[in-house]
């Protein structure tokens, strides 16, 4: 599972890991949680995925399958598993008002989502897991916590009913280091970094979910090496000296980019210190191509602490 704020590159990480796993001959499945279009954006015109990715897994190219964990479809599946009378299931699913109600009801979307995820993990074909691995692109930080909190929220609310066993099963799945790992994705900027530090604190303190990597994406590259300080000052002074407005501006632009780099490095250092997980810092690329994504995936899967 990958979690992090919107726009930090969760989908890139998920797809990267899938590409890297597929290159090893595995059968990865990327599961998007209610996302729109992020996967289509990546595979775009290249794969057959230029059409919608729906609830049924489909190959999107390069040995990667993908699906969108839509609420309604997962609720229907859940109902079909728990209510044996088809007619009753149909009566519920055809009733728009009732479907909306279930969407609004506390924890029902989380239960049905976890139900589907668990069955994807357990699915087997030809004596081996059908999906290896199931890679979940969680919607946002809050969403991840909602899923992880579910067993606790439900505790005391569910004494009987079909949910009890299910919830216990989810707790087991979400805390089993052999089956589950949650990776945190963030950017080397103040707000996302701060949120990640807080998230790590919460997860570390309150949850049993096994944590994998901290992935920092879009790390800027330096304009100058640090040792250049004197030379930089000299060059800046020379540009200011004469009538060189464009050169002077260039110094400002370069120093600004350098300052951005320094600030990003400071955020990465704070993250490394506050989050005791192997950290993968990935360089800034305006447009990650499939190859770049695969490299990112390999870094996440194989790199040890502090590398990359």
């Amino acid at each position: 599972m990958f979690t992090g704020k919107g726009g930090v590159g969760k989908t890139s990480c998920a797809v990267g890991c899938a590409l890297a796993a597929a290159a090893e001959g595995r059968r990865p499945l990327v599961v998007e949680m209610g996302h729109r279009a992020s996967l289509e954006g990546i595979f775009g015109s290249e794969g057959p995925a230029s059409v919608d990715i729906g609830y049924t897994p489909r190959e999107v190219g390069h040995g990667v399958h993908a699906m969108n964990l839509e609420f309604e479809a997962s609720l229907v599946e859940y109902l079909e598993q728990n209510i044996k009378i088809k007619r009753v299931v149909r009566a519920i699913t055809r009733n728009n008002a009732l479907m909306r109600f279930f969407h609004a009801a506390p924890s029902v979307p989380e239960v049905t989502a976890l139900n589907k995820l668990a069955s994807l993990v357990e699915a087997r074909e030809g004596g081996r897991p059908r999906w290896d691995p199931v890679i979940v692109d969680l919607d946002a930080t809050g969403h991840a916590l909602m899923l992880l909190n579910l067993p606790r929220v439900m505790d005391g609310l569910i004494g009987d009913g079909p949910m009890r066993g299910l919830i216990d099963g989810f707790s087991g799945l979400l805390s089993d280091p052999k089956r589950t790992v949650l990776n945190l994705v963030t950017l080397p900027r103040e707000l996302p970094a701060q949120e990640t530090l807080e998230l790590f604190g919460t997860l570390d303190r309150d949850h049993k979910v096994p944590l994998g990597r901290l992935v920092v994406t879009q790390c800027p590259t330096p304009v100058f090496e640090d040792a250049d300080a004197d030379a930089r000052a000299e060059l800046a002074k020379a540009a200011e000296g004469g009538d060189f407005p464009a050169a002077q501006r260039a110094v400002i632009v370069a120093e600004r980019a350098q300052a951005r780099y320094a600030r990003a490095q400071a955020q990465i250092a704070a993250l490394r210190e506050g989050v005791s997980l192997p950290t993968v810092a990935f360089e800034h690329r305006p447009q990650l191509e499939l190859e770049g994504l695969q490299a990112l995936g390999r870094a996440i899967i194989f790199e040890e602490a502090g590398h990359a």
Binding site: N82, V88, V108, L157, P162
Partner: peptide, 17 residues
């Protein structure tokens, strides 16, 4: 409807809901 909801979410949650 109430029964259905109870089947899906369990009795205690039903009561609170």
């Amino acid at each position: 409807v109430t029964k259905l909801f109870g089947m899906v979410v369990g009795r205690d949650l039903l009561d609170e809901t």
